[in-house]
């Protein structure tokens, strides 16, 4: 589907705590639901989310089937230097969804 949505402040002061919001389209099938014929729908979830700041990992999340579809995640990190934030979501099928955002740190 579409690109994952990410909201990062475009500028921040050195050492400032910034909030990053993410939203991605994904069915997040638990593996316990059944289709109209009564068959179990196989599990298909995003199991790992990572955020790297100029190559250095600053946030990682391990997800389990309790997350709802189209998962929303917000977290905080410290603005240290100008550069690029890279966000990656990896699901059970091995698909990697990625997007990037730039930040300018004064």
């Amino acid at each position: 589907m579409a690109e994952p949505r990410v909201r990062v402040p475009s500028t921040a002061k050195q050492g400032e705590i910034i909030e990053i919001k993410t939203l991605i389209s994904h069915p997040m099938e638990t593996g316990h639901s059944r289709d109209v014929y009564g068959r179990l729908i196989p599990r298909h979830i995003i199991h790992t989310f990572t955020c790297t700041y100029n190559g250095e990992e600053v946030f990682r999340a391990d997800w389990h089937p309790a997350m709802a579809a189209n998962p929303y995640l917000a977290f905080y990190t410290v603005a240290t230097e100008s550069g690029r934030l890279r966000f990656e979501w990896i699901d059970d099928k091995g698909t990697v969804y990625a997007t990037e955002a730039e930040i300018t740190v004064a």
């Binding site: 589907m1 579409a2 690109e3 949505r5 909201r7 919001k21 939203l23 991605i24 389209s25 189209n70 929303y72």
Partner: peptide
């Protein structure tokens, strides 16, 4: 204006 899941479809529609 960020977390409304329907906005994912708005963005896809924009593309």
């Amino acid at each position: 204006d960020f977390a409304n899941p329907g906005l994912l479809w708005v963005e896809h529609g924009r593309a």
